[in-house]
Design a protein around this nucleic acid. Sequence first.
DNA 1: TACCAGGAGAGCG
DNA 2: CGCTCTCATGGT
Length: 294
Amino acid sequence: MPAATCSSRLAASCSTTWPVEDYDLAKTLDCGQAFRWTQTGDSWTGVIRGRWVRLSCTGGRLRAETAVPQTGWQWLADYLQVQVQLAPILATFPNDEPMRAAVATCRGLRLLRQEPWECLASFLLSSTKQIVQIRETIVLLCARHGDPVTVPAGQPPAYSFPSADQISRLSEADLRRCKMGFRAPHLLAAACAVLEGRLDWERLRAKSHAEARACLMQLRGVGPKIADCVLLFACGFPEAFPVDVWVARALRELYFPRRRVSPQRLRDFAAPHFGLHAGYAQQYLFHYMRKARG
DNA sequence: TACCAGGAGAGCG
DNA sequence: CGCTCTCATGGT
């Protein structure tokens, strides 16, 4: 079928493109904010909202292909945040040596707008795990408990991320078989909280950052770091500043040499120092440190 | 073998 | 408050 990129209102197509500036797809999809993307050549394959997607970006155009014809692409434009101008965000970063180095290394890295449940579940599974292990657990979880999604001929099978409803009907043993260990009961309890309406994403978005954070931290297994990951990567709180071991190491070495500083104090330092888009700055520091040391 | 990983939470002083 | 320990598991 022809790839109609300029479609009339009702025409369905399996591909589209957006003009983009400063959009580094590889850094964006492989910087540790999302765990389900796989690279083959210059393109990236993943599943968003139950739809198989392949992305590539060359010559200032971001191209997307799906397996099933789409009548609209807003769901994907939102996820990729293609309308966001990067330069004004980078301009809010402090003009100090650590940030200049991070921007020089990571230019083009974007924050995605992920699905809240998948983001919460993924980061619930992330604690004290390496990124490769997080990905492995999520692959198992999706393949065993998600739904198969339509893929183009010749492509390997792909699966949706299991919904809160699907996970709530599993046993702790089912989840432990996906190598999530002590995190299994946390994931099960979070799924129930969503089902019972104790955790409602619309209500969460309407709260202040501090209130939303406290709300998420009522869940077992969700502390300050994971709460801020969900608020930053899925809920649109640009001031959320997750402090993990890498970011803590970066801040201590770069801003507090030879001093003992707690994670709480690092967060208190971050808000005024990194400004309106502290969360963006955090992701640049995270990727910069991991690339430099990893 | 020892140590670490995009942590959190309980126990303790 | 800050420190220490446990939780699970594969990699280096």
